[in-house]
């Protein structure tokens, strides 16, 4: 069972992480190519605190706090630059994070941090905790989308200038989206660090940011269920793909491309098309 438990934990952490980006990119339309940096902030915060003797469960809110605070700082960038400029700026934030961590001896530098103390929970309990967190993030997402804030997010994603003209305080909502999303990413990072017990700068680089964005887009940007399913599937795909060994990244890249090429709305749209063909008939 341990293998399945380990896979389920990985899935749950990925779902949580993907949902956190979905809040920013999916709901509020602010594309981020550097989201893994916040996973990293959470992971390093939780790992370092646990090594300093702070109980594991207490490290999680602290990791969220730190990650969310840095998220707000980056959120300010989104007030200044937009769309493709923002995408590249956030990508830069990701590279900057990795570049800085690499040089910090206090954070283990290139070597990373290993031997993160045990949580004291059984593997099963830890998995259940991760699943519960992912489920909570899913519920939070659904709630946010339905409430007033979520509608403003959607409007900003659709047409920011019009919202501004309507007298709505756009910066405040954008910063809220960033704070929420990055805090959740920090939580995912804390779980990640405790799950693997080893973190190094390279684990939070550009590739990881791309991977999580792919999860969101493949799931169907903005769709809570779609993103959850795609994150769960894509996160364990490489392990399942061991069978096709040498070709796994080729298949991964190919699938990503084909999905966008033939179903740009992601899995959510694909499912909708299969079950409601009439909606697509007129297109």
């Amino acid at each position: 069972m341990e293998y399945e438990i380990s896979l389920a934990t990985t899935m749950a952490i990925s779902v949580l992480f993907a949902l956190s980006l979905n809040l920013i990119t999916g709901f509020c339309g602010q594309i981020s190519l550097g989201h893994a940096a916040f996973l990293g902030v959470g992971a390093y915060a939780s790992g370092m605190l646990a090594k300093a003797g702070v109980p594991f469960l207490l490290t999680l809110p602290l990791a969220m706090l730190l990650s969310g605070a840095l998220g707000i700082v980056v959120g300010f960038a989104s007030l200044r630059v937009r769309a493709d400029f923002l995408a590249i700026t956030t990508m830069g934030v990701g590279f900057l994070f990795v570049g800085i961590v690499r040089q910090q001896d206090a954070l283990g530098g290139e070597m990373g941090i290993s031997a993160i103390p045990d949580t004291g929970m059984s593997k099963l309990a830890f998995m259940l905790l991760a699943v519960a967190m992912a489920a909570a993030a899913g519920l939070l997402s659904t709630y946010v989308r339905r409430c007033w804030m979520g509608r403003v997010f959607a409007a900003i994603a659709e047409d920011e200038d019009t919202v501004r003209v309507m007298g709505i305080d756009v910066p405040r909502f954008k910063l809220t989206a960033f704070a929420l999303g990055t805090a959740l990413a920090g939580l995912a990072g804390g779980l990640y660090a405790q799950h693997l017990k080893f973190i190094a700068p390279d684990s939070f680089g550009f590739i990881e940011s791309i991977t999580v964005l792919s999860m969101v887009v493949v799931g169907g940007i903005g769709s809570v269920v779609g993103v959850s399913v795609s994150a769960a599937v894509l996160s364990v795909l490489p392990s399942w793909f061991q069978v096709i060994g040498d070709y796994k990244l080729l298949v991964y890249g190919g699938l990503l491309f084909l999905m966008m090429r033939f179903s740009p709305g992601g899995m959510a749209a694909l499912v909708a098309r299969i079950f409601h063909p009439d909606r697509w008939g007129s297109k």
């Binding site: 080729l250 890249g253 491309f257």
Partner: peptide
């Protein structure tokens, strides 16, 4: 060309997928 009318992240992710596949193809 077939996905030009989509929001910008669609061609972006398609392009990333294409790049990953291409890099792997070179290796294989």
């Amino acid at each position: 060309q077939p996905i030009l009318h989509q929001p910008p992240f669609v061609p972006l992710i398609a392009s990333i997928g294409l790049y990953i596949a291409a890099e792997e193809l070179f290796r294989i």
